[in-house]
Simulated assay, not measured.
Amino acid sequence: MTRAEARRQAEQLAALGRALFFDPSLSGSGKLACSSCHDPARGFGPANARAVQLGGGDLQQAGVRAVPSLKYLQAVPPFTEHFHDSEDEADESIDTGPTGGLTWDGRVDRGAAQAAIPLLSDFEMGNRDEAEVARRVLAAGHGKAIAAIAGPKGADRAATDPATVYKTALKALEVYQQDYRTFYPYSSKYDAVLAGKAELTSAEARGLDLFNAPDKGNCASCHISKRGNDGTPPQFTDYGLIALAVPRNPDIPANNDPAYFDLGLCGPLRTDFLKRAEYCGLFRTPTLRNVALRQTFFHNGVMHSLRDAVRFYVERETRPERWYPRKADGSIDRYDDLPEAAKANVSMDPPFDRKAGEAPALTAAEIDDVVAFLGTLTDGYEPAK
């Protein structure tokens, strides 16, 4: 294949992927598209404040996790249990542990594999198997595009072979999500500031300082705010998996069963680490780009305001009574969305290194400043001329 042919095929795949992304007829209900949960106007995250979305053939099946954003996934590394992070690329002495993967639990590395999850999920798009996805793709009229991508030699097979149709559809969705103008434009106010084309307000500048300060928010320890060593824009994540012990969310129907726990890296959706106790409760750190567009926060969507999300970080240990329920004996049920054995995995790094009754690392006014700064990470900023 020549370079021109490869470019043309990539353009065809991207066009098909975009059409598939916005096509609800690929779902069992005929009403749920990828874009239904990944709204472009919301940073390709959910358009509503539901903790989990409804799907399946009757659009009444509740998910178990909050819908993540699909933006800025292009630099996420493949999942590894041992990620070596160092300013000196030749020094691999710093093992930061489980890192990477495209989902909350890091179980897939490629966009095509990620796209398959909702297509085949009982509580999302509700297709029984790959063949049903292929049938819906062809019934929706995408066969001509698939045949064109396959070329003259493969057109007949592409139009009739379910496996080829399915594989091409997943590849198309992957290629569409590699469009930098749509999925990683780096067009926020903060990007303009880094380029010398804008200035932070006083509140935003204070918020950035608090965000970075190890003895205050310490947010940048996981949500890296500096450019990469190669000059690339900050991704606002280290891609690591961490146990934050956010409160259990009663709005998730699965949580009605007191024996049910979503433990992220050690299951139940991810199955290869089910017996790795040290991985229970760990979820991947998402980018904070476009976080101000969200109406639900954390893997279980338990928070519904960005201010509460920031406040949780500094009050989880200092004011646990605000975030966790009481047990029958009146004591606080700390880390109530984790079984007892998994509580040892909870991060105690700053600002979680304080005790109940101590002053939080951030005051109310400082939380407001951090939130103001986070608002500068929304794409679509246009500098004043």
Rank of each mutant, 00 (worst) to 15 (best):
R3T: 13
E5A: 13
E5K: 14
E11T: 13
L13E: 10
G17S: 07
G17R: 03
A19L: 10
P24F: 00
P24Y: 03
G28I: 05
G30K: 01
C34I: 04
C37D: 05
H38Q: 10
A41R: 09
F44M: 11
P46R: 12
N48V: 15
A49I: 11
A49Q: 12
A51E: 06
A51N: 08
G56E: 05
D58C: 00
D58I: 02
Q61M: 13
G63W: 03
V64K: 12
V64G: 12
A66W: 06
Q74R: 14
V76S: 02
V76D: 00
P78Y: 01
T80L: 07
E81P: 11
E87V: 14
A90W: 15
D95Q: 04
T96R: 15
G97A: 08
G97F: 06
P98F: 00
L102G: 03
V108D: 01
D109R: 08
G111R: 02
Q114T: 13
A115M: 07
A116C: 09
P118Q: 02
L120H: 05
F123G: 09
E124I: 11
V133R: 11
A140S: 12
A147I: 01
I149M: 06
A150E: 09
G151P: 02
P152R: 03
A155K: 06
A158D: 00
A158T: 00
A159Q: 15
D161M: 08
A163R: 15
T168F: 08
T168N: 03
A172E: 04
L173A: 02
L173W: 01
E174F: 10
Q177T: 11
R181D: 12
P185A: 14
K189D: 02
Y190C: 04
S202K: 12
E204M: 06
L208N: 02
D215E: 15
I224K: 12
S225L: 06
K226L: 12
R227D: 07
R227N: 14
R227A: 14
Q235W: 09
F236M: 11
L241W: 01
A243P: 01
L244Q: 14
N249M: 08
D251T: 14
P253R: 05
A254Y: 13
Y260Q: 04
L263F: 10
L263T: 06
P268N: 07
T271C: 10
F273R: 14
F273M: 09
L274V: 13
L282W: 03
L282E: 00
F283C: 01
R289S: 05
N290R: 02
N290D: 12
Q295C: 09
F297W: 04
V302N: 04
S305G: 01
L306N: 00
R307D: 12
D308G: 06
V314N: 03
R316F: 07
R316V: 09
E321T: 14
R322Y: 11
W323L: 05
P325T: 07
D329C: 06
I332R: 02
D333M: 01
R334T: 09
R334I: 15
Y335R: 02
Y335G: 01
D336I: 01
E340A: 15
A341N: 12
A342H: 03
A344N: 08
N345A: 05
V346C: 03
D349W: 09
D349Y: 11
D349P: 09
P351T: 02
K355H: 15
A356T: 13
A359Q: 14
P360Y: 01
T363R: 04
E366A: 03
V370G: 05
L374N: 04
G375A: 10
G375Q: 11
G375K: 13
T376F: 07
T378Y: 08
G380M: 02
